[in-house]
């Protein structure tokens, strides 16, 4: 099985240039449904489910491989290689902002521009660095995950994988949004919230758009400041939006900022 199949890669739109969207922690590629279509006229648009989420081949979720973001970086690199793509624009939300950053560092030939939506290189406070959370808070998330399966039951797994030729499929998929194997959710929560990628983001040289929401419970302004001070080649845009998922709650504003960034630069 290829990485393209593993991660349920969806290719839409057409254009010289490709944009690949990576969803963040919590849900799946359905998160992009209000933003990605806006790019289909001018770009080849790729969305996919991170391993363990959505319609990915969760039976291949290997806790060792995905014990750090490297496993997800491997997947992104493999997908782009399998599709023979170079110089794509990578858009990553939340934790996936770090995934695309790591991939851009490892394989500069694959990614020539990055968009990081609500990124935080490290959620845990550390000395002068204010990530917004104490380690204890972050571990508390694991307790919440332990008691909230969001309707997940192992019997439902086949439904979530999707069975073609079934009329009720669309409805089921909507219902399955955000449903994740609790063990995987717990594991990925650790990878997402307990790692420190501050040194990694300093190494990104490609032009990067950093989109933050003016009020995000997960990413305090101290983190914006840190990113502004430490990233080599980044534009920082603060959206007049609240929450951690502007592409879901404020799709127009998010799309507008993205369009502005990806539009071919015209020499004035």
């Amino acid at each position: 099985m290829t990485a393209v199949e593993h991660c349920a890669v969806k290719i839409t739109g057409s254009g010289e240039k490709t944009i690949v969207f990576l969803h963040g922690y919590g849900c799946d590629s359905g998160m992009w449904c209000k933003v990605a279509p806006a790019f289909e006229n001018d770009f080849r648009v790729i969305t996919y489910d991170l391993m363990g989420y959505g319609k990915s081949a969760t039976e291949h979720y290997d806790p060792v491989r995905y014990a750090s973001l490297d496993g997800h970086v491997d997947d992104l690199v493999a997908i782009l290689d399998e599709l023979r793509l170079k110089d794509v624009i990578a858009v990553g939300h939340s934790v996936s902002a770090m995934t695309i950053g790591l991939a851009a560092k490892r394989r500069p030939d694959l990614i020539d521009r990055l968009v990081m939506i609500c990124p935080s290189p490290s959620y845990a406070n550390d000395g002068d660095y204010v990530g917004g959370f104490e380690k204890q808070d972050l571990l508390g998330l694991l307790d919440i995950l332990d008691v909230n399966y969001l309707g997940w039951a192992r019997d439902m797994a086949p439904l979530i994988m999707g069975v073609p030729d079934r009329p009720a499929l669309g409805e089921e998929l909507t219902e399955s949004f955000c449903q994740t194997d609790p063990d995987i959710a717990r594991h990925f929560a650790k990878v997402t919230f307990l790692f420190d990628h501050r040194e990694d983001v300093k190494m990104i040289t490609q032009p990067t758009l950093v989109l933050q929401c003016r009020d995000d419970a997960l990413v305090p302004p101290t983190v914006w400041t840190w990113l502004m001070d430490n990233m080599q080649n980044a534009d920082h845009v603060i959206l007049d939006a609240t929450g951690h998922c502007p592409h879901v709650s404020y799709p127009e504003a998010t799309t507008e900022a993205l369009v502005e960034f990806v539009r071919p630069r015209v020499v004035s």
Partner: peptide, 22 residues
């Protein structure tokens, strides 16, 4: 709680927006 905020923003708010309820 702080952990609850993360859960709300990463799971519940998207669910409200996509499914309309939880």
């Amino acid at each position: 709680s702080r952990a609850g905020r993360i859960y709300f923003e990463t799971h519940l708010r998207p669910l409200l927006l996509m499914n309309g309820h939880f």
